[in-house]
Design a protein around this nucleic acid. Structure first.
Length: 751
DNA sequence: TACTAAGCTCTTTTT
DNA sequence: GAGCTTAGTA
């Protein structure tokens, strides 16, 4: 037997060496799934299988990269030739090769969710539909769902089930919108995320020669996180595996958390009926977590009805019990978590990167970030507003996108008046109108702006813009992507206007652009792969990148992310914040069992990320849309068997000098006071004490409330700390930084 | 046409 | 709170 197989337990070894025929591996949390997958590929390579014949589909780029690195360690550099990546990136690669069959060019643009929504808005405008009734995000959801179920725009209009649903929900024009959306994307030479899957399916259905080519290429197919694949993905994989039937899927039904994206447990069930000769292997030993964590998470997941039976166990030591923190509000929660990290880091000699803070929604990161920053604990937020989604980055990338593809209307709309060059909304509307009237691309109108009298005086500005773009197009072929980018940043004036903006946000935007330019430079100078350093290749590289993919694990930072993005990761100490009813489980999941069970699986995923210690926290009140709302502890806290939880629950006391709560009635002169503070020049004293502005009718100050007068400069700020009953008031938060006074206002409606 | 202040609306998770 | 739209002003 190969030496490296000795590292495996019995079922793991079987999963690695059963190379031929369909195989399903049910891999419990922490059961060494990644190890099995990497060893399996290494084993195939050692058996003499050509890496060109192996495809491994993962859920995230990070998982793919990690696996590639680990295989290289076992099997050497041969692993570089493997096709390994996310469904989206692998299929994008295939689609670029076969693009002409579908009427696209090989450098089609990939629209992200924001672009897609913007296309939908444009469609609604054209069809004269109300975007209050046809909400873009909802429309996109419907289209996405249709695509994931292999329903094209043409089929959608024919499908009685969906059209009946649309009519009953007051959206009879849905199928028209879908068709128009498709047409617009196609004319723009663009595909959205779901197209990358659907169009691959269409390619394989309509072009048997293409299917044949890839069927024979991919003799061995591996699918990671199988529980999170949707119908479309399954159908593509099924087609690919039809010849050799060497298909291995790895998943865990207990960790299925993407049904909102079309993932379906049916894929696990139908897999068995699809492949009668299927072999199923269960990996049930957990190598990651302490006994206490394994048992506690088991006590949660066993409450779900829908699951494949398995018994997860571990030989690890018993470990510490789960701790529960109770905080009075979200800021206190953040502070408490930060304090706990600070103390544990000292007492247990841990590093920052031993800690992760997980939460249900991205919005929750704010309070943790503020608290960590105040305590000088370095951290990194994954997901949320990713680098590539920032306005200034997207604006700049849009220039590059447009230089690469002049049909990309979304890119054109972003850059035509940014930085401002006197082409306002009216002019843009006229250009769109003209492009509709003459049925020509927007760019053609822009290019020939001087021939359209409708554009009036603005036409010379449009012509100038077109000239500038044309000068970029000329440069494109002569220079590498970095030289081109640097030139674009300079000539458009983008760098200049950001440099001149000396506000905090402006400086940060400037830095972001500079750092983007640096990363483009890195791309252009990278000689570890043979890829040409063209603009097209750069855009392809970044189109499917997400923040989570950025490899910064070598930095010693606390990780903050949603539970969804934590899937597949592990940390010695895991904090899970906001364990509150209506937040986790999410309010939207409460009405039906299936959704609630998915939330429970999400909680299970959160707990099983931890190796050593889990600390849960919840707040008794939390800001929601600028309003402080009371919160109840989550049902999940009660669902954990008591024996796995520490008895003494912590209680945090309000003693924060930085948060001030100042009441006011709504239309008082407080607004004037507020404005006078906000517009206060650096060295001018604050106005007089604000106690005058506390309404007299607030008499129900509870014992939780304290009034305090604090000197600031030559003035005084009055703080009312704590919360009273049913006070209609505004909250004044202040934060004394080095020089400036940052003040935020929000309303308390109900306490 | 550009900028601003005020007002309204939405609140899950991601490739 | 954030993001977006509207109304009013320069």
């Amino acid at each position: 037997m190969e030496d490296f197989l000795l590292n495996l337990n019995e079922p793991q070894r079987e999963a690695v060496t059963t190379t031929d025929g369909p195989l399903m591996i049910i891999a419990g949390a922490g059961s060494g799934k990644t190890r099995v997958l990497t060893y399996r590929i290494a084993y195939l390579l050692k058996k003499g299988i050509d890496p060109f014949n192996i495809i491994a589909l993962t859920f995230t780029n990070k998982a793919a990269r990690e696996m590639r690195e680990r295989i290289e360690k076992v099997a050497g550099t041969e692993a570089r030739n493997l096709w390994m990546g996310t469904f989206h990136s692998i299929f994008a690669k295939i689609l670029r090769i076969e693009a002409d069959k579908l009427g696209y060019t090989s450098h089609f643009t990939i629209y992200d969710t924001e672009d897609s929504k913007s296309v939908i808005k444009a469609v609604l405008k054209e069809l004269n539909l109300d975007d209050k009734v046809y909400k873009p995000s909802m429309i996109l959801n419907r289209i996405s769902n249709a695509k994931n179920n292999l329903i094209t725009a043409a089929m959608y209009a024919q499908n009685e089930e969906v059209t009946a649903y649309d009519i009953s929900s007051g959206k009879p024009q849905m199928s028209k919108i879908y068709a128009a959306y498709e047409m617009k994307c196609f004319k723009s030479g663009a595909m959205d995320f779901d197209d990358l899957l659907l169009k691959t399916y269409i390619l394989f259905s309509k072009f048997p020669s293409a299917l044949n080519k890839y069927q024979h290429k991919f003799k061995y197919i591996l699918v990671d996180e199988y529980q999170d694949t949707n119908h479309c993905q399954f159908m593509i994989v099924k087609k690919l595996a039809a010849v050799y039937r060497n298909i291995c899927v790895v998943g865990d039904d207990s960790q299925s958390i993407y049904s909102f994206r079309g993932a379906t447990i049916k894929n696990i069930l139908t897999f068995e009926s699809e492949y009668p000769e299927l072999k199923v292997i269960k990996l049930e030993q957990n190598y990651r977590s302490t006994q206490n964590i394994v048992n506690a998470s088991d006590s949660i997941i066993k409450r779900n009805k829908d699951q494949i039976s398995k018994k997860i166990w571990t030989q690890n030591n018993e470990g510490e019990k789960i701790k529960v923190l109770k905080a009075i509000n979200d800021n206190e929660e953040g502070k408490f978590v930060a304090q706990t990290i600070f103390e544990m880091r000292m007492s247990k000699n841990l590093q920052n990167n031993n800690f992760a803070i997980l939460y249900r929604t991205n919005a929750q990161s704010r309070s943790f970030e503020e608290a960590l920053r105040k305590m000088n604990i370095p951290y990194k937020v994954y997901g949320g507003m990713s680098f590539y989604q920032r306005k200034e980055i997207k604006d700049f990338i849009s220039y590059l996108r447009f230089i690469s593809n002049q049909n990309d209307e979304e890119a054109l709309k972003r850059i035509i008046n940014y930085p401002m060059r006197g082409i306002g909304q009216t002019t843009i509307d006229r250009i769109i109108y003209l492009s509709g009237v003459y049925d020509i691309p927007l760019w053609q109108v822009v290019e020939n702006a001087n021939t359209f009298t409708e554009l009036k005086s603005a036409s010379s500005k449009v012509v100038d813009f077109a000239m500038m773009i044309k000068s970029f197009l000329v440069l494109k072929d002569k220079n590498n992507v970095y030289e081109l980018s640097a030139y674009v940043a300079k000539v458009t004036g983008l760098l200049k206007i950001l440099h001149e903006d000396k506000t905090i946000e402006g400086i940060s935007r400037y830095e972001n652009i500079v750092s983007l330019l640096n990363s483009i430079k890195e791309f252009a100078e990278d000689d570890t792969n043979e890829q040409e350093k063209t603009l097209e290749n750069y855009l392809q590289d970044i189109a499917l990148l997400t923040d989570t993919d950025k490899d910064e694990t070598d930095f010693d930072k606390v990780s903050l992310m949603t539970i969804h993005s934590a899937k597949g990761l592990e940390f010695p100490v895991v904090f899970v914040g906001g364990i509150e009813e209506n937040l986790f489980p999410s309010q939207m999941s409460l009405s039906n069992r299936k959704d609630l069970e998915e939330e429970r699986r999400l909680f299970y995923v959160a707990l099983t990320r931890a190796k050593e210690k889990v600390i849960l926290s919840y707040a008794t009140s939390r800001f929601k849309f600028g309003t402080l709302m009371p919160c109840e502890p989550s049902r999940f806290l009660d669902e954990i068997d008591k024996e796995f939880i520490e008895n003494d629950k912590f209680y945090n006391i309000v003693n924060d000098r930085d948060d001030a709560y100042t009441s006011q009635s709504k239309n008082s002169s407080f607004s004037k006071f507020k404005n006078s503070i906000l517009s206060k020049p650096e060295n001018k004293p604050l106005p007089n004490p604000i106690e005058n502005f506390i309404p007299e009718n607030i008499t129900d100050l509870t014992e939780n409330m304290r009034i305090e007068h604090i000197r600031f400069g030559k003035g005084t700020v009055t703080k009312v700390e704590g919360l009273g009953e049913n006070i209609k008031a505004s909250v004044l938060f202040d934060d004394f930084g080095e020089k400036q006074l940052v003040i935020k206002f929000a309303k308390i409606r109900k306490i």
